[in-house]
């Protein structure tokens, strides 16, 4: 079936019906879901950056099987490069193998394949090909958490240090922290959560994680979960994203109007930035969708048109075929 299709396609090309050079390269995008705020903003940026290419978007509805089918279909259609936002990180190996068989380069977005997938230990033709044609573009694991800790540190210092400041309400000098996680066991959630705690510790603070809840990355869910938090013991809230941070803020505004808690988010969404402006959040870390989209476009251009590979800088870290964006801090003047 597929070979026949290819035959017809190449026949068509030979007859000049679809001149290869005339039609733009096919760079299909596979997003794991349609309702993810960050993925949506990344897709908007990608749409801008990939103007020169055909880039149909396939949403996989959180179903890896559906994503695989869409990928196979686009391979049959003659895809030139695959942009894959995985549903299941464990399926990356199969997609890479298939890409190798079909010799179609592959860039993974936002969800990182396993370490061995992009750097196969067996080497050989396959390993060499993968290292040259498969890439990952995303934010640096835990980087946002580290930046969240930096915001907290800056904030505390602006108060003249944490201990004995009004924020240390129980006066024990230990930072009592609540963590709002996106999901239990989710890479971004766990990395950010542990990195923000570790970041505070590294800066010399005594830290106690009083509570952690997970709210499925949603504002409403976070507001609901906030009811179970022991706010009298909490002095700082780290949220894995802005949506959930705003959910907690809303809960506090409605139920504890007299309590002021510093809340720090991640993503730098429009709502998040606005909340920083008006002081609802003390800060957020931009998950740099425009920067990632630009790097992805540069990689596509490298893979299809042979332009040079992107060069790393302070806002972009490159480790072999892993490309990590380093987001900026957005915070109010304390």
């Amino acid at each position: 079936m597929k070979r026949i299709k290819h035959l017809f396609l190449s026949l068509g090309a030979m007859l000049g019906l679809t001149g290869c050079s005339a039609s733009p390269s096919q760079v299909p995008i596979f997003a794991y879901a349609e309702d993810d705020t960050f993925i949506s903003s990344l897709l908007v940026e990608l749409d801008r950056e990939l103007q020169g290419y055909d880039h149909p978007i396939h949403y996989s509805n959180r179903d890896q099987n559906q994503q695989n089918s869409a990928i196979l279909e686009e391979i049959d259609n003659g895809a030139d490069c695959l942009l894959v936002n995985l549903v299941d990180r464990l399926s990356a190996s199969a997609i890479i193998e298939k890409a190798y068989e079909e010799e179609i380069p592959c860039i993974f977005l936002n969800r990182r394949p396993l370490d061995d997938d992009l750097d196969p230990p067996e080497g050989g033709l396959f390993g060499t090909w993968v290292r040259q044609h498969c890439f990952y573009v995303g934010s640096y694991p835990g980087y946002e958490g580290e930046k969240q800790a930096e915001i907290a540190d800056t904030y505390f210092q602006a108060q003249g240090g944490f201990a004995r400041s009004p924020i240390d309400r129980n006066g024990d000098g230990v930072v009592q922290v609540a963590i709002i996680k996106g999901e239990q066991g989710h890479q971004d959630a766990e990395e950010r959560s542990s990195a923000c705690l570790q970041g505070l510790k590294n800066r010399g603070y005594a830290v106690e994680a009083v509570a952690s809840v997970y709210a499925n990355w949603e504002k409403g869910k976070a507001k609901e979960m906030a009811a179970s938090l022991p706010f009298e013991d909490i002095e700082l809230v780290f949220s894995n994203n802005d949506d959930m941070a705003l959910g907690v803020a809303e809960y506090l505004e409605e139920n504890e109007p007299d309590l002021f808690l510093p809340i720090i988010g991640v993503d730098g969404t429009a709502a998040g930035k606005a909340a920083v402006e008006d002081g609802t959040l003390i800060g957020t870390v931009v998950n740099d969708a425009p920067k990632q989209a630009k790097i992805i476009a540069e990689l596509v251009s490298h893979l299809l048109d042979g332009t040079p590979l992107p060069v790393g800088n302070e806002s972009f870290l490159i480790e072999s075929n892993y490309y990590y964006s380093m987001g900026n801090i957005v915070s109010s003047d304390f």
């Binding site: 179903d63 890896q64 099987n65 695989n68 549903v87 299941d88 464990l90 399926s91 190996s93 199969a94």
Partner: peptide
């Protein structure tokens, strides 16, 4: 042939 989601098996 297909992957079994979230298991790494096929």
């Amino acid at each position: 042939a297909m992957t079994i989601a979230n298991t790494g098996w096929r």
